[in-house]
Amino acid sequence: MDIRSKRPQRTDELLNPDRRTLLKCSAWAGAGVIWAMSGGIPRAFALDETGNVADPRALASSFHFVQISDSHIGFNKEANPEPVKTLQVAIDRVVALPQRPSLILHTGDITHLSKAEEFDTAAQLLKGLPSTVHYVPGEHDTLDEGGGKLYLERYGKGTRGNGWYSFDDHGVHFIALVNVFNFQAGHEASLGADQLAWLADDLRAVSSSTPIVVFTHIPLWTIYQPWGWGTEDGDHAIAMLRKYGSVTVLNGHIHQVIQKVEGNITFHTARGTAYPQPAPGTAPSPGPMTVAADQLRNYLGITDVRATQGDHPLALIDSTLV
């Protein structure tokens, strides 16, 4: 793609970082990309050899977890006729990790059409993962007649509202937010007043030195408004998180890696395991992007998140299914 080849040229000019910041960013993003804002949209910039830091896996980590996203079980179109197969490849990758992840986050769109049999197939496959999986729903998981009933019956136990919850693991506070209910015409996704009130209450007991991981399906910040890639009241949640020393916001929904760092908050969306979508604004619509069959796995992947003790940001390492 010629867009990509131009990017390294524009990196410095857009980001204007000092060398140290640049290296820090690339270490976080792993997988040989760094992130910069371009016209308000975060974009990936391929790193050249000189910008490449040591293998991110070399980062000493006291624990790690994995994010998988957008399995879309039930999708069967040209962009990937067999998302069951590619989900299995992703699961195999997680199983093959040298260190078993402490936990796994699935950031939604488990199914494509919220059919009971799609949920069954997905659950059967995801059973093969080596650690406990924590879920949030995507909008494709709320398409049943009950408007999300099937998802909540399966994964909503012990959660509040439409499936939000929090838990602690290895000293990290994990917060699962849900932004795929109550869509309003012409508006981006929303968390809603009830969930925001719950979040404020939940954070009351969390000290500002506690690392926080927020995971939700649709990006919490606006990546591209014309495609509805954002959460309208996400900034209310983000405002509550600003005082914390290390916040990582993990999303799915857009089937590609996009990252932004703002103060102590790192926003990151993961690749899906089903099919790629175009970069923001590069196509007439955000519909599935069909790539050559032998290239598909370059566009699908998982994210490995490593945490070190102390004040370090979490390291995010994206890998494709190749």
Binding site: F183, A185, W227
Partner: peptide, 12 residues
């Protein structure tokens, strides 16, 4: 009658 797509609310 105004309508939209609940999956993609920007579609009206």
């Amino acid at each position: 009658f105004e309508y939209f797509c609940v999956l993609h609310p920007q579609m009206t």
